[in-house]
Amino acid sequence: MEKSDLTVTATLASLVLDEAETQKLGDEVSRMLSYFEKMSEIDVDGLEPTTHALQKENRLRPDRGLSNEAQPDELLECAPDLEDRFILIPNVL
């Protein structure tokens, strides 16, 4: 794998890698990619991609409100910081 590909992938995943990590991960990812290459050799023309192993279609919900076991207030307690009912984070604009 090209090192630049790894750097781009790391950036997209918001990972900061130092030189040693880049080296180590580069080797591991290259090995993974070689497995995918092996799979790519198989002829799958005419086969429908399997994105879901169990249920293959239509799991729907009627458009009705549901009460949650977890209340909004409990969920908000998981946030590191609040201002009134807003979740407060460092500016990311």
């Binding site: 807003f86 979740i87 407060l88 984070i89 460092p90 500016n91 990311v92 604009l93």
Partner: peptide, 12 residues
Amino acid sequence: MIHAGDMSLLDY
């Protein structure tokens, strides 16, 4: 999102 100074406020 509301951006206020050095903080941002989130409403989901």
